[in-house]
Amino acid sequence: MSDIIASSAPRADRLRPATDEQLRWFDITETDRSRAEALAATADELAEPIIEDFYRHLLSFEGARRHFRDDDQIARVKQGQLRYFRELVAAALDDEYVANRRRIGLIHERAGVTPTLYVGAYAYYLHSLGHMVMDRMQDDPARAVSLLLSLNKIAHFDMALALETYVDTREAAIEQREREMSELPTPVLQLRDGLLLIPVVGTLDSFRARNLTVRVLERIRDLRARAVVLDITGVAAVDSAVASHLIQTMTAARLMGATAVLTGLSAEVAQALVKIGVTSEALHTAGDLQHGIEIAERLMEG
């Protein structure tokens, strides 16, 4: 165990404490490791009946049964689970083990194994093993309890790894979605000679707002636009940062000699604009697109 601690290299991932730190957090000592190992033979022997038992329990649930295509798959998953629980008592708790557990967590996540299902299976295993170990060690129940408590620590460490992976995977998916949203192109449409319409849809972060501004300004120059209607009906959320981005775009359009009209303002957007000190005097606004286009046309004529 001391070898393991000494050899655990610092990981590139700074947010995640290194393996030895995690082990310290769960208070898993060399004693716990050797106690768990003392259970190895028993656990090995009992793993199979427990898992058989568990699958009888699991397959009695309609929702769980739908996860499996056929008996072959059930057999394969059973084998995997056997290995999983054997490693729990026998494997060295090193970086490689952690990486492997995280990989399994990822597979679970992709296969749609929910945290409830995962933790439930774990609890079932620990509970069954506990009962059987207590039965076998009736002559020394105190030792049985201490062995099981040590195994409990390792099991919790193990579960934490899997759950972290779940969270990480979900977070990565959300991030990906957000990136896709912010990379959505915003078309700059020419409604008629000199009048541009820009329907903004989705979320507007500073990266996208900057691109939007640059594009609008270029199109104003290229199409010799005199008026621009910026429609934000489809913008998910407008906070004061987004509002100030929109004002910047409109101000820059004015500097280039094009009048900008902002349309599709919801009550929240109006409040956000007031909060950053923008009033309708400094800005042409309209509640809906039709009205906005009418205003723009009037401004172009006048």
Binding site: T213, V214, L217, E218, I220, R221, Q248, T251, A252, A253, R254, L255, M256, G257
Partner: peptide
């Protein structure tokens, strides 16, 4: 003032010179 270019307009706005 006429003919402000896109880049100039954008940097002016970023500097708060409106």
């Amino acid at each position: 003032i006429v003919g402000i270019q896109p880049d100039v307009a954008f940097s002016m706005v970023l500097m708060g010179l409106t």
